[in-house]
Design a binder for these strands. Structure first.
Lengths: 231, 231
DNA sequence: GAAGGTCGAATTGTATCCAATTGGCCGAGC
DNA sequence: GCTCGGCCAATTGGATACAATTCGACCTTC
């Protein structure tokens, strides 16, 4: 009843939490107590747990047995791996899909780019992150493989979290200039050059991260691990 | 506390069900009733649901709202996509990892190959599927990216299900001769040739599937959907 | 004063209970 | 004879109740 749209309440919770994470309202490490969330949404812990479990499957939250769920805190090493994974996956998808691109694809990419630019001008960080994600998703769509696309989707979500954690607050999550240049390369139809441009863009995104700032405990741990046995 | 090993009961359930699927004891489409499984394992539906939800995240079971969980029935199109995804992912991982391979890696691959051959000789289908999965997993390990490795892991699981569904019962899931030849190519260190051999091997696996047998209901369903009812 | 242990509040894990949905069965009506 | 309609068993979805675990605070002890 209550005709709460077509989406179930747990889907709404998942979307809300994900959005809050991407928008930096929820910092990594934030505790997500079952009772608290249930209170907010007016549902029992059962459905909260379902939502949290789903978010955990997407690697956006970390469920620690008997110790509750927190927003995922990727280590610098994990952040690195995610971006390497994106480079590998996206360049492959681009190679698969480039030849198959139609006018519709180009138009869609142009449209997303325009939205990206608009978000930049408006300084709307959340819209920028969303537009950037959409751009990369759309770029991979012509490869026409929903399995790989789902993987990319997960990686984009994790990237958003990583960017929210490690990137300077005022920096742009993804340069739309890069996207623009990339579209130019794509228009030429040269696979190798387009791949190179995409890889370079992702490397830039990665390099913009500051992997030493985060919180208080990770650096200390890393220090210990980097110290070879000689104390 | 029942010292039930270190693994929780729901992990055991997941492993059992996955094994049963891969070993063709549970055919795709088999209903997995919550009460039934809870009875078998002596736990409440709560933990059964957790296990089923996890299996659904791995795409091994399909949870249909209000209608229960069944073993995933990939359509021919989905099966195709999974194998394309594997080709893309594994060749990329091989390119990333080939230069980094050590003696330990080669030894591990040889060991798995030996187990694979032994399983073939013994006619142990389950061991063959497991050995084949291990081989591909180990092949990807040197790339040293746990994110992509996790994706591959999921794809291997789904492949096992697909093979169980679509492959002739007496056929081998993966030719160990291919694996052997692939190792030879890898030993030369030629990335392009190793990639080609791997891609060819995966294409062979895919071609061995018979994608027309289990077509009892899908076409009929599609027909119905195209016809507005009540004329 | 510091270290260690114990107790207690808070939170998660599991079981059980009730409501809602599904799908089939049977009977009424055309 | 066939179809449409409403009941009924079975199963899932969600809420609540209870048990188990964690973590912090306080107290004791050296």
């Amino acid at each position: 009843m209550s005709e709460t749209c077509a989406v179930s309440i747990d889907q709404r919770m998942r979307a809300d939490i994900a959005e809050a994470i991407f928008d930096q309202r929820m910092a990594p490490g934030t505790r997500l107590s079952e009772a608290g969330l249930g209170e907010i949404y007016g549902v029992s812990r059962t459905v909260v747990r379902k939502a949290l479990f789903h978010l955990a499957a997407d690697k956006l939250v970390d469920i620690r047995p008997n110790r509750g769920a927190i927003v995922w805190q990727p280590s610098p090493a994990e952040a690195h791996e995610v971006f390497v994974a994106r480079r590998v996956l996206e360049t492959s998808l681009l190679a698969e899909g480039l030849a198959r691109m139609t006018e519709t694809d180009h138009a869609a990419l142009d449209r997303i780019l325009a939205a990206d630019i608009a978000a930049h001008e408006a300084g709307d960080r959340q819209a920028m992150i969303r537009a950037s994600g959409d751009f990369h998703r759309r770029l991979a769509a012509p490869a026409n493989n929903s399995v790989l696309l789902a993987f990319l989707d997960e990686l984009i979500g994790r990237s958003s979290l990583i960017i929210a954690l490690y990137e300077a607050r005022d920096a742009a999550p993804c340069s739309h200039h890069d996207h623009q240049a990339l579209l130019a390369e794509i228009a030429t139809g040269d696979v190798a050059r387009a791949q190179a441009a995409l890889a370079e863009h992702l490397r830039d995104c990665q390099n913009r991260l500051v992997l030493d700032a985060p919180s208080a405990e990770t650096p200390a741990l890393a220090d210990l691990l980097h110290r070879p046995r000689r104390a």
